[in-house]
Write a protein that binds this DNA or RNA. Structure first.
Lengths: 127, 127
DNA sequence: CATATAGGTATCTTTTAGTATACTAGGTAT
DNA sequence: ATACCTAGTATACTAAAAGATACCTATATG
């Protein structure tokens, strides 16, 4: 009973954060990117958040940070070997996620989306 | 480029919430549980949070809510058929999560844990 | 008549996550 | 001398998530 050994929370911990999924998406897609390239690819992110999310991914050894000691600075980010091992999990999540979206569309209709989730909650609540 | 079609965020949306993993863990393990049984199984959760997390899972058709019209009330929660389809994803997350924890232990030593993650961030930051 | 019961809701406070904006370093181009 | 560049940091603020606590419902029991 004590501590549930169901540790999918570990994966959640890596992925949680408003910008982590999209940061990972770009790094997985493009291989290696500079800080400024990531910024351009994700226009609404602030430097602070981009730095923060990258640091957390770096802590988990998902992302590698390569510093070129130049002026002006150059820093490149890429997925580590360990991080690449995560891709099957992400793929599994992605695949099931897609089918889940279809399922939700069947339940609630095409017009709904993951984003417009708040408004629908009361429907289920008020029954 | 536009909208990344990498939709593992959908799965995140279902699972994110401080108590969702443990709620799911108990429901997957025990099959069917009353509200009060969940409360007992997760002592630190408040009624408010338990209700909220269950409602969100219900919205996503992961959890089913069966109401017995009695006084005092009786409500049973269980994993839906659709929800059961999620178990392979959760298993994949769980498995990779375990190996990731080992990896982190190799990197940072045995004493660290997922929980004591804050304190370690500066180590990676300050290099 | 007061109390307990189960499964909640309502309201308020605290904590955490995210945003906005200004500032920095150090070398190069004007 | 001044402005510009990149990859940040620092500080202050706002929004969202979670916690604490009180209350509600209708029946059955003492």
């Amino acid at each position: 009973m004590e501590e549930p050994h169901c540790k999918f929370e570990t994966v959640l911990e890596i992925l949680v954060g408003k910008w982590k999924p999209i940061v990972l998406f770009h790094l997985f897609s493009n291989g290696t990117m500079r800080f400024s390239e990531l910024q351009k690819a994700i226009p609404d992110i602030t430097k602070k958040m981009l730095t923060q999310q990258l640091r957390e991914l770096e802590y988990h050894d998902i992302v590698h940070r390569k510093i070129y000691h130049q002026i002006p600075p150059k820093v490149e980010y890429s997925i580590t070997e360990h991080g690449k091992g995560m891709s099957t999990v992400l793929q599994a999540m992605n695949d099931w996620g897609m089918s889940h979206l279809n399922h939700l569309n069947e339940l609630y209709g095409e017009e709904r989306s993951v984003e417009s989730f708040e408004g629908r909650l009361d429907e289920v609540t008020g029954s």
